[in-house]
Amino acid sequence: MNHDAYDDNYIRSILNGVKSIAMVGASPVNVRPSYFAFKYLAQRGYDMIPVNPGHVGKSLLGKPFVASLSDIGHPVDMIDIFRNSSHIMPVVDEALTLSPPPKVIWMQLGARDDAAAEKAEAAGLKVVMNRCPKIEYGRLSSEISWMGVNSRTLSSKRAPIPTQGMRLSLNRMSVGGGATTASDRAAKNKSEPT
């Protein structure tokens, strides 16, 4: 699995396939990225579970916080980890003890732990690193296009007007280049000694 550049179909199959997402590191502070990613994914119809031991007893957009993955008490499809790269491994270890385990481990934009990814993949899970599911959903649905972002997709179909809870079609034609090749080069440049 090449974790520098993902095929759109890989991301599409994950976002089309999962129904419930536990967000580790979700914040109740409404100006934090984890808060608005949580809110967006809930608006797009995902069953969201906020995981953060510091906020147990409170709730996020009506969903009660749980302290850890094992406290969720029912199966979840995807774990979205909103933590720094150095805090990923314990979350993956805990996810792998769940029964049944989640189908997908997703590490947020800026977060990457290749050893944790390898462990999850060895257990049959799909892994995405250093991406934001809100950005990817917005991109593949083209909802992100309002601010001039290259969705790298095309469609000749009329789009619906999004309403609360509506899942959008992600099945648009993919376009090459853009974020993929540019990010590849950036990743390569970053890893070379300077």
């Binding site: 280049g177 974020a179 990010s183």
Partner: peptide
């Protein structure tokens, strides 16, 4: 913006 970003192979414009 998106059209030119796509033609140039950029991420956004």
């Amino acid at each position: 913006e998106e059209r030119i970003a796509a033609l140039e192979g950029g991420t956004a414009a």
